[in-house]
Simulated assay, not measured.
Amino acid sequence: MSSGDKGDKVKDLQARLKQLDWYEPKIDGVYGAKTVSAVKGFQGKREIPVTGEVDQRTLDRLTAMTRKPTTDELNNVVAKPKPSSMNLDDRCLQGRVVCISKKQRKLALVVDGTIQMSMDVRFGSELTPTRNGVFSVGWKSRNHVSKLYGSKMPYALFFSGGQAVHYSSDFAARGYNGSSHGCVNVRNKEKVAALFDAVSVGDKVVVYTG
């Protein structure tokens, strides 16, 4: 595939690039300048010759790192939020709290015991675990990049040293097959962006096992 191409294959390409946070516009099936730029970025990051065209090597690498796009993704349909059945820790029931359950793999913004929004999350590995406890949001960084690992951490809400809630393109692509270095990863960019805007520095954060 290359500039000027159109059709379902280009839609699939754009959707997969979007999963990895390389392509931002709506999926339209047109291989234009923004698609070329996204492909070049992906190729450069993976040390593939940067041409802006999708050869077999580029396609194989992209396919291996992503999942098959859903019909909704291919047609720019945003899923309606489902009611949450998250079990809240008692420490989450008063005031404004970012409530995070490891067992349920869920994060919820809770105000006076009522869930305002919720999202799927994943955590650190056994070697770099996410700390349990009661914390508060120390600072926010919308376009953060890790100084330690060089990875993008958009919409970062730091609550315990270098540990933060943030969007993860790796979580979006690989799901629970991967893990973080201790941060709380969110795979839905729209939801974590909304959380970032809703949360203030000083808001309580509760991380618990149950």
Rank of each mutant, 00 (worst) to 15 (best):
V98R: 02
G52M: 08
L157Y: 06
A38Q: 03
R61Y: 11
E73D: 07
G202C: 06
K204R: 12
K45M: 09
V205E: 06
T209G: 02
E190Y: 07
H166R: 09
T35H: 05
T209W: 13
L88M: 05
A15Q: 04
A194W: 12
V10W: 05
A156Q: 11
F196D: 14
F159D: 11
P25S: 04
A38G: 01
G178I: 14
R91V: 01
S146C: 03
V186D: 04
A64Q: 10
K140Y: 06
N132I: 10
E190K: 08
G32E: 08
D5C: 00
H181G: 01
L62G: 09
E47F: 12
E73N: 03
G133W: 07
D55N: 15
W139I: 00
L127Q: 15
K102M: 11
V145W: 06
T35M: 03
K140I: 03
K6W: 01
G32R: 02
V186T: 14
A156V: 05
S146D: 05
H144V: 03
Y155V: 06
D8M: 08
C99F: 06
G150D: 10
S141L: 13
C92T: 07
Y31E: 14
S85D: 14
G7I: 02
R91I: 01
I27Q: 02
V111R: 14
K80E: 14
M86C: 06
G175K: 08
D170H: 04
G210I: 12
D112A: 11
T35E: 04
K82M: 10
L74N: 07
K6C: 01
G4V: 11
N188W: 09
G95W: 12
T130C: 05
Q163F: 03
V78W: 12
V205I: 00
R122E: 15
